[in-house]
């Protein structure tokens, strides 16, 4: 098999995931796009490992070992990521990452932030931080 087939497919999958990460608004869809990018990397690793295991004399099968590690780390990442998204949803009532612009936690967070301008809400959050530190 020509090596360009899996390499091109993984490059295109990676860029599809890149588009999803940049363009999606829901945090869980962003996590799905991150999974797409990780899978593209996995395909690359497997393809190059199969290529090198036949051309090199002795191989450590590092590509496949790294693929297994990537899969395990991706599983851990999706668990932690979903726990974070659920915690954010429980606290803020939304999983829309465009609305999670400030890390300051207010009582009536999203409702008051929608009406204000960006600099006004930033000013209010800095005022609240000043109140909290005072």
């Amino acid at each position: 098999m020509h090596l360009a087939y899996p390499a091109v497919l993984s490059a295109l999958l990676f860029c599809t995931g890149l588009y999803g990460v940049l363009a999606r608004r829901n945090a869980i869809l962003v996590l799905m796009s991150v999974e797409l990018m990780l899978n593209a990397v996995n395909l690359n690793l497997v393809a190059f490992d199969v290529w090198l295991s036949k051309t090199a004399q002795d191989t450590l099968h590092s590509g496949q070992a790294l693929t297994l590690f990537t899969i395990a780390i991706a599983a851990a990442e999706i668990g932690i990521g979903l726990a974070i998204v659920l915690a954010v949803y429980r606290n803020r009532g939304t999983s829309d990452i465009d609305k999670l612009r400030d890390t300051a936690e207010t009582d009536d967070g999203d409702d008051s932030d929608d009406g204000h301008d960006a600099h006004e809400s930033a000013a209010s959050t800095t005022a609240e931080k000043a109140e909290a530190t005072a």
Binding site: M1, H2, L3, A4, A7, A47, V50, W51, K54, T55
Partner: peptide, 8 residues
């Protein structure tokens, strides 16, 4: 990788 083939 234009001239690279995987031996399956």
């Amino acid at each position: 990788f234009r001239t690279t083939w995987i031996d399956l």
